[in-house]
Amino acid sequence: MKPPAEAQNFRHFDLKKKFRISESIIQALLFLAGILSIFTTLAIVYELGKEALLFFNIPDVTLGKFLGTTKWQPGIGQYGIWALVSATLVTSAIAMLISLPLGLASAIYLSEYASPKMRSILKPILEILAGIPTVVYGYFALLFITPILKSFLGDNIQVYNMLSAGLVMGIMILPLISSMSEDALSAVPRSLREGAYAMGATKLETSLQIVLPAALSGIGAAIIIGISRAVGETMIVAVAAGSGPNFSFNPLEAAETMTGHIARISGGDLSYNSIDYTSLFAIALMLFLVTLILNLISQWVVNKFREQYE
Protein backbone atom coordinates (compact mmCIF):
# COMPACT_ATOMS: atom_id res chain seq x y z
CA MET A 1 0.00 0.00 0.00
CA LYS A 2 2.94 2.29 0.62
CA PRO A 3 3.92 4.65 -2.14
CA PRO A 4 7.33 3.92 -3.60
CA ALA A 5 10.19 5.42 -1.70
CA GLU A 6 11.02 7.93 -4.43
CA ALA A 7 7.58 9.43 -4.28
CA GLN A 8 7.57 9.78 -0.53
CA ASN A 9 7.76 13.25 0.80
CA PHE A 10 10.93 12.63 2.70
CA ARG A 11 11.41 14.60 5.88
CA HIS A 12 14.56 14.98 7.83
CA PHE A 13 14.38 14.63 11.54
CA ASP A 14 16.51 16.81 13.67
CA LEU A 15 16.89 15.19 17.05
CA LYS A 16 19.85 17.22 18.12
CA LYS A 17 19.66 18.86 21.46
CA LYS A 18 18.13 22.28 21.09
CA PHE A 19 19.05 25.14 23.32
CA ARG A 20 15.81 26.50 24.72
CA ILE A 21 16.62 29.88 26.14
CA SER A 22 13.42 30.34 28.16
CA GLU A 23 13.74 26.89 29.72
CA SER A 24 17.27 27.70 30.76
CA ILE A 25 16.33 31.03 32.28
CA ILE A 26 13.48 29.46 34.23
CA GLN A 27 15.70 26.68 35.45
CA ALA A 28 18.31 29.19 36.56
CA LEU A 29 15.70 31.19 38.45
CA LEU A 30 14.37 28.08 40.16
CA PHE A 31 17.90 27.10 41.09
CA LEU A 32 18.41 30.53 42.64
CA ALA A 33 15.21 30.13 44.67
CA GLY A 34 16.44 26.71 45.74
CA ILE A 35 19.77 27.91 47.02
CA LEU A 36 18.39 31.07 48.61
CA SER A 37 17.96 29.10 51.81
CA ILE A 38 21.69 28.42 51.81
CA PHE A 39 22.27 32.14 51.55
CA THR A 40 19.89 32.71 54.45
CA THR A 41 21.99 30.47 56.63
CA LEU A 42 25.19 32.07 55.41
CA ALA A 43 23.72 35.52 56.03
CA ILE A 44 22.73 34.55 59.57
CA VAL A 45 26.19 33.21 60.29
CA TYR A 46 27.93 36.15 58.60
CA GLU A 47 25.85 38.99 60.04
CA LEU A 48 25.61 37.52 63.51
CA GLY A 49 29.25 36.46 63.45
CA LYS A 50 30.45 39.85 62.22
CA GLU A 51 28.79 41.77 65.05
CA ALA A 52 29.60 39.11 67.61
CA LEU A 53 33.23 39.35 66.57
CA LEU A 54 33.13 43.09 67.19
CA PHE A 55 31.90 42.30 70.68
CA PHE A 56 34.54 39.68 71.39
CA ASN A 57 37.26 41.90 69.95
CA ILE A 58 36.73 44.45 72.69
CA PRO A 59 39.86 44.03 74.80
CA ASP A 60 37.82 44.04 78.00
CA VAL A 61 35.72 41.07 76.86
CA THR A 62 37.59 37.88 77.55
CA LEU A 63 36.36 34.35 77.18
CA GLY A 64 37.10 33.92 80.87
CA LYS A 65 34.77 36.75 81.80
CA PHE A 66 32.16 35.65 79.27
CA LEU A 67 31.96 32.08 80.47
CA GLY A 68 33.38 32.46 83.96
CA THR A 69 31.35 35.21 85.60
CA THR A 70 27.71 35.56 86.43
CA LYS A 71 26.82 39.23 85.98
CA TRP A 72 25.70 40.58 82.62
CA GLN A 73 25.76 44.29 82.01
CA PRO A 74 27.98 45.05 79.04
CA GLY A 75 27.50 48.79 79.53
CA ILE A 76 29.50 48.72 82.76
CA GLY A 77 31.95 45.99 81.88
CA GLN A 78 30.15 42.91 83.17
CA TYR A 79 30.12 40.16 80.57
CA GLY A 80 29.04 37.00 82.41
CA ILE A 81 26.70 35.23 80.03
CA TRP A 82 25.65 32.80 82.77
CA ALA A 83 23.33 35.46 84.12
CA LEU A 84 21.19 34.91 81.03
CA VAL A 85 21.96 31.25 80.39
CA SER A 86 20.79 30.29 83.88
CA ALA A 87 17.31 31.66 83.23
CA THR A 88 17.17 29.94 79.83
CA LEU A 89 18.13 26.67 81.52
CA VAL A 90 15.57 27.04 84.32
CA THR A 91 12.64 27.99 82.09
CA SER A 92 13.50 25.34 79.50
CA ALA A 93 13.87 22.68 82.18
CA ILE A 94 10.49 23.51 83.70
CA ALA A 95 8.95 23.54 80.22
CA MET A 96 10.37 20.10 79.43
CA LEU A 97 9.33 18.77 82.83
CA ILE A 98 5.76 19.70 81.93
CA SER A 99 5.64 18.99 78.22
CA LEU A 100 7.58 15.73 78.14
CA PRO A 101 5.42 13.55 80.40
CA LEU A 102 2.17 15.17 79.35
CA GLY A 103 3.04 15.14 75.65
CA LEU A 104 4.27 11.56 75.75
CA ALA A 105 1.24 10.34 77.68
CA SER A 106 -1.09 12.12 75.25
CA ALA A 107 0.80 10.59 72.35
CA ILE A 108 0.48 7.08 73.77
CA TYR A 109 -3.24 7.57 74.25
CA LEU A 110 -3.74 8.97 70.76
CA SER A 111 -1.61 6.35 69.06
CA GLU A 112 -2.48 3.21 71.04
CA TYR A 113 -5.86 3.72 72.67
CA ALA A 114 -7.98 6.37 70.95
CA SER A 115 -10.65 5.29 68.51
CA PRO A 116 -10.53 7.10 65.17
CA LYS A 117 -13.46 9.19 66.32
CA MET A 118 -11.77 10.16 69.59
CA ARG A 119 -8.64 11.05 67.65
CA SER A 120 -10.57 13.27 65.25
CA ILE A 121 -11.83 15.25 68.26
CA LEU A 122 -8.63 15.38 70.28
CA LYS A 123 -6.08 16.13 67.58
CA PRO A 124 -7.65 19.44 66.48
CA ILE A 125 -7.61 20.57 70.12
CA LEU A 126 -3.88 19.98 70.25
CA GLU A 127 -3.50 21.68 66.88
CA ILE A 128 -5.31 24.77 68.15
CA LEU A 129 -3.00 24.79 71.15
CA ALA A 130 -0.04 24.61 68.77
CA GLY A 131 -1.36 27.46 66.64
CA ILE A 132 -1.83 30.05 69.37
CA PRO A 133 0.73 32.86 69.05
CA THR A 134 3.31 32.84 71.81
CA VAL A 135 2.53 36.41 72.83
CA VAL A 136 -0.93 35.17 73.79
CA TYR A 137 0.73 32.52 75.94
CA GLY A 138 2.68 35.37 77.49
CA TYR A 139 -0.55 37.12 78.42
CA PHE A 140 -1.85 33.85 79.84
CA ALA A 141 1.29 33.33 81.91
CA LEU A 142 1.40 36.81 83.39
CA LEU A 143 -2.31 37.38 83.95
CA PHE A 144 -3.61 33.89 84.72
CA ILE A 145 -0.90 31.49 85.88
CA THR A 146 1.11 34.01 87.91
CA PRO A 147 -1.90 35.17 89.98
CA ILE A 148 -2.77 31.52 90.67
CA LEU A 149 0.81 30.78 91.74
CA LYS A 150 0.76 33.90 93.87
CA SER A 151 -2.41 32.80 95.62
CA PHE A 152 -0.62 29.60 96.66
CA LEU A 153 2.86 30.90 97.32
CA GLY A 154 2.10 34.44 98.38
CA ASP A 155 5.15 36.62 98.75
CA ASN A 156 7.51 33.70 98.22
CA ILE A 157 7.07 34.19 94.54
CA GLN A 158 7.83 37.35 92.61
CA VAL A 159 5.35 38.92 90.21
CA TYR A 160 7.69 38.13 87.35
CA ASN A 161 9.05 34.63 87.79
CA MET A 162 10.59 31.83 85.83
CA LEU A 163 8.13 29.24 87.14
CA SER A 164 5.07 30.76 85.49
CA ALA A 165 6.89 31.32 82.20
CA GLY A 166 8.28 27.79 82.27
CA LEU A 167 4.91 26.19 83.02
CA VAL A 168 3.18 28.00 80.18
CA MET A 169 6.07 27.27 77.85
CA GLY A 170 5.54 23.60 78.73
CA ILE A 171 1.92 23.84 77.66
CA MET A 172 3.02 25.55 74.46
CA ILE A 173 5.50 22.77 73.64
CA LEU A 174 3.17 19.93 74.65
CA PRO A 175 1.44 19.65 71.25
CA LEU A 176 4.80 19.52 69.47
CA ILE A 177 6.10 16.68 71.66
CA SER A 178 2.76 14.92 71.44
CA SER A 179 2.45 15.00 67.67
CA MET A 180 6.08 14.06 66.97
CA SER A 181 5.93 11.22 69.52
CA GLU A 182 2.64 10.02 68.10
CA ASP A 183 4.23 9.84 64.65
CA ALA A 184 7.07 7.81 66.12
CA LEU A 185 4.71 5.44 67.95
CA SER A 186 2.48 4.98 64.89
CA ALA A 187 5.55 4.11 62.83
CA VAL A 188 6.23 1.04 64.98
CA PRO A 189 5.10 -1.90 62.84
CA ARG A 190 1.86 -3.59 63.83
CA SER A 191 3.58 -6.96 63.80
CA LEU A 192 5.46 -6.02 66.98
CA ARG A 193 2.22 -5.27 68.79
CA GLU A 194 0.70 -8.52 67.54
CA GLY A 195 3.76 -10.42 68.69
CA ALA A 196 3.30 -9.01 72.17
CA TYR A 197 -0.44 -9.64 72.29
CA ALA A 198 0.10 -13.21 71.13
CA MET A 199 2.20 -13.79 74.24
CA GLY A 200 -0.62 -12.80 76.51
CA ALA A 201 0.37 -9.18 77.05
CA THR A 202 -2.22 -6.59 77.97
CA LYS A 203 -2.58 -3.44 75.94
CA LEU A 204 -0.65 -1.45 78.54
CA GLU A 205 2.22 -3.94 78.68
CA THR A 206 2.40 -3.88 74.90
CA SER A 207 2.30 -0.08 74.71
CA LEU A 208 4.77 0.67 77.47
CA GLN A 209 7.20 -2.23 77.19
CA ILE A 210 7.26 -3.00 73.46
CA VAL A 211 5.95 -0.06 71.41
CA LEU A 212 7.42 2.75 73.49
CA PRO A 213 10.99 1.38 73.56
CA ALA A 214 10.76 0.65 69.84
CA ALA A 215 9.82 4.29 69.18
CA LEU A 216 12.40 5.67 71.55
CA SER A 217 14.67 7.29 68.98
CA GLY A 218 11.75 9.08 67.35
CA ILE A 219 10.63 10.28 70.76
CA GLY A 220 14.19 11.36 71.46
CA ALA A 221 14.07 13.51 68.34
CA ALA A 222 10.83 15.06 69.60
CA ILE A 223 12.44 15.86 72.93
CA ILE A 224 15.42 17.50 71.26
CA ILE A 225 13.18 19.62 69.04
CA GLY A 226 11.17 20.51 72.13
CA ILE A 227 14.29 21.67 73.95
CA SER A 228 15.36 23.68 70.93
CA ARG A 229 11.93 25.32 70.85
CA ALA A 230 12.09 26.10 74.58
CA VAL A 231 15.55 27.63 74.33
CA GLY A 232 14.49 29.84 71.42
CA GLU A 233 11.09 30.86 72.78
CA THR A 234 10.96 34.58 73.38
CA MET A 235 7.58 36.14 74.04
CA ILE A 236 6.44 34.07 77.01
CA VAL A 237 9.64 34.79 78.91
CA ALA A 238 9.75 38.39 77.75
CA VAL A 239 6.29 38.97 79.20
CA ALA A 240 6.28 36.78 82.28
CA ALA A 241 9.79 35.84 83.41
CA GLY A 242 11.11 39.29 84.24
CA SER A 243 13.39 41.91 82.83
CA GLY A 244 16.89 42.12 84.16
CA PRO A 245 19.62 39.47 84.14
CA ASN A 246 19.70 37.49 87.35
CA PHE A 247 22.00 34.55 87.93
CA SER A 248 19.61 32.34 89.83
CA PHE A 249 18.28 28.83 89.66
CA ASN A 250 15.32 29.62 91.89
CA PRO A 251 12.22 29.39 89.67
CA LEU A 252 10.29 31.67 92.02
CA GLU A 253 12.55 34.59 91.16
CA ALA A 254 12.49 36.93 88.22
CA ALA A 255 15.24 36.49 85.68
CA GLU A 256 15.90 37.21 82.04
CA THR A 257 16.63 34.56 79.44
CA MET A 258 18.92 35.04 76.45
CA THR A 259 15.93 35.56 74.18
CA GLY A 260 14.12 37.81 76.63
CA HIS A 261 17.23 39.95 76.95
CA ILE A 262 17.55 40.38 73.19
CA ALA A 263 13.87 41.35 72.96
CA ARG A 264 14.06 43.90 75.76
CA ILE A 265 17.31 45.56 74.73
CA SER A 266 16.52 45.66 71.02
CA GLY A 267 13.05 46.99 71.77
CA GLY A 268 14.52 50.05 73.42
CA ASP A 269 16.60 52.77 71.85
CA LEU A 270 19.63 51.02 70.58
CA SER A 271 22.46 52.74 68.77
CA TYR A 272 24.43 50.76 66.23
CA ASN A 273 28.00 49.87 67.11
CA SER A 274 27.35 50.28 70.83
CA ILE A 275 28.45 47.44 73.03
CA ASP A 276 24.81 46.70 73.85
CA TYR A 277 24.15 46.25 70.14
CA THR A 278 27.08 43.94 69.41
CA SER A 279 26.58 41.93 72.59
CA LEU A 280 23.04 41.06 71.44
CA PHE A 281 24.51 39.51 68.31
CA ALA A 282 26.89 37.45 70.40
CA ILE A 283 23.91 36.09 72.33
CA ALA A 284 21.92 35.52 69.14
CA LEU A 285 24.82 33.66 67.58
CA MET A 286 24.97 31.39 70.62
CA LEU A 287 21.24 30.76 70.35
CA PHE A 288 21.56 29.99 66.66
CA LEU A 289 24.40 27.55 67.17
CA VAL A 290 22.72 25.76 70.07
CA THR A 291 19.42 25.32 68.23
CA LEU A 292 21.24 24.39 65.02
CA ILE A 293 23.11 21.61 66.78
CA LEU A 294 19.94 20.38 68.47
CA ASN A 295 18.04 20.40 65.18
CA LEU A 296 20.82 18.55 63.37
CA ILE A 297 20.95 15.87 66.06
CA SER A 298 17.20 15.49 65.94
CA GLN A 299 17.16 15.11 62.15
CA TRP A 300 19.93 12.58 62.32
CA VAL A 301 18.05 10.58 64.93
CA VAL A 302 14.82 10.69 62.91
CA ASN A 303 16.60 9.47 59.78
CA LYS A 304 18.23 6.62 61.68
CA PHE A 305 14.83 5.73 63.09
CA ARG A 306 13.28 5.65 59.62
CA GLU A 307 15.97 3.34 58.32
CA GLN A 308 15.27 0.92 61.14
CA TYR A 309 11.77 0.17 59.88
CA GLU A 310 12.21 0.53 56.15
Binding site: G34, I35, T234, I262, S266, L280
Partner: peptide
Protein backbone atom coordinates in the same frame (compact mmCIF):
# COMPACT_ATOMS: atom_id res chain seq x y z
CA UNK B 1 22.70 19.92 51.98
CA UNK B 2 19.99 22.27 50.68
CA UNK B 3 17.28 20.01 52.05
CA UNK B 4 18.89 19.60 55.45
CA UNK B 5 19.49 23.31 55.58
CA UNK B 6 15.83 24.06 54.89
CA UNK B 7 14.74 21.68 57.64
CA UNK B 8 17.16 23.37 60.00
CA UNK B 9 16.02 26.86 59.12
CA UNK B 10 12.47 25.81 60.01
CA UNK B 11 13.74 25.24 63.54
CA UNK B 12 15.76 28.42 64.02
CA UNK B 13 14.25 30.59 66.79
CA UNK B 14 12.26 33.48 65.37
CA UNK B 15 14.25 36.03 67.36
CA UNK B 16 17.38 35.01 65.43
CA UNK B 17 15.54 35.92 62.24
CA UNK B 18 14.79 39.22 63.90
CA UNK B 19 18.51 39.78 64.45
CA UNK B 20 19.18 38.88 60.83
CA UNK B 21 16.51 41.35 59.75
CA UNK B 22 18.00 44.04 61.96
CA UNK B 23 21.50 43.57 60.59
CA UNK B 24 20.60 42.91 56.97
CA UNK B 25 17.41 44.78 56.12
CA UNK B 26 17.40 47.59 58.65
CA UNK B 27 21.11 48.41 58.47
CA UNK B 28 22.88 47.03 55.40
Amino acid sequence: VIQTNINNLAGVPSIVYGMLGLALFVRV
